[in-house]
Amino acid sequence: MSKVILKAEAVRKAYRSGTERLEILKGVNFTIRSGESVAIIGKSGVGKSTLLHILGLLDTADAGRITLDETDIASIGPVARARLRNKRFGFVFQFYHLLPELNALENVYLPAMIASGTFSWFSVRSKMRNHARELLAHVGLSERTRHKPKQLSGGERQRVAIARALINKPAVLFCDEPTGNLDDKTSQTVTRLLWRLKSELDQTLVMVTHEASLAGEADRTVHMVDGRIMKEGA
C-alpha cells in the first residue's frame, strides 16, 4: 500500500448560528494515500465542503487531529499553513473563483508567484509562464491565455481553475463539486479532463460530488451522513 499523505482522526466541527449550536462534523475519520482518488458523496448541507476545507488547511477543526506527512498540523503556525496550502494542495471550487482582474494565464501562474518571493520571481518567471501555458494547452485553452474570466464560459473558467490548481504540482488536488455549476455537456468535458489528468499525472485527488459519473471512476467512494463517514468501499 502506498504512503499516507493526509489523515483525519475524530474531526469535529460545529457552527453557532444565533443561540443554536449546529454540529456539522461529529467525529470524521478519513485517510488519503498517495496516488489514490477518493470521491466524497453526501446530501447537500451535510458538511462535505466543511470537511474539505479542514483537510485543505483552509479551516480549523474544533476537535480531532489532522496529520499531513505524519506531522500534526495543530503545531503549525498560520504562515506555515499558508505555505502548505500553496505548495502541497490544489483547490478547484464549484464557482471557479478566478481573480477577475487577471487574465487566464496570470490566474494560472498566480500560485507560482505566491510560492516565490518578490525577487526570486524574476528568476523563475519565464519558466512559470511557460509551465502555465503548457497547462492551459493541456486543458485545451491555448487560444484563451489573454482572456479575462468574464470573457470565458463556465466550462472554460473551470478548466483555467484546474490548470491553476496544478501549477505548483500539488500533493493533493481537492475538487469541491467542480461540475456543480455547469450544464450536462460541459460537465462531461470537465469530468473527462479531470480523470485524464489524474491518470496522466498520477495525481492524488479528493473529489466532492453528487454525480455518479464522477464518483464512479474514483478508486474509493465514501458517503457522508449526519456528520460522519458512513461507508468506505472500493
Binding site: 483552509l58 498560520p78 496550502r85 505548495k87 471550487f93 473563483h97 481573480l99 477577475p100 500560485p111 505566491i114
Partner: peptide
C-alpha cells in the same frame, strides 16, 4: 472574494 481566493491559494495575511 479575491481575498478569500488568495487565502486558499496560500497568501499570508
Amino acid at each position: 472574494r479575491d481575498i478569500g481566493i488568495l487565502g486558499a491559494l496560500g497568501s499570508t495575511r
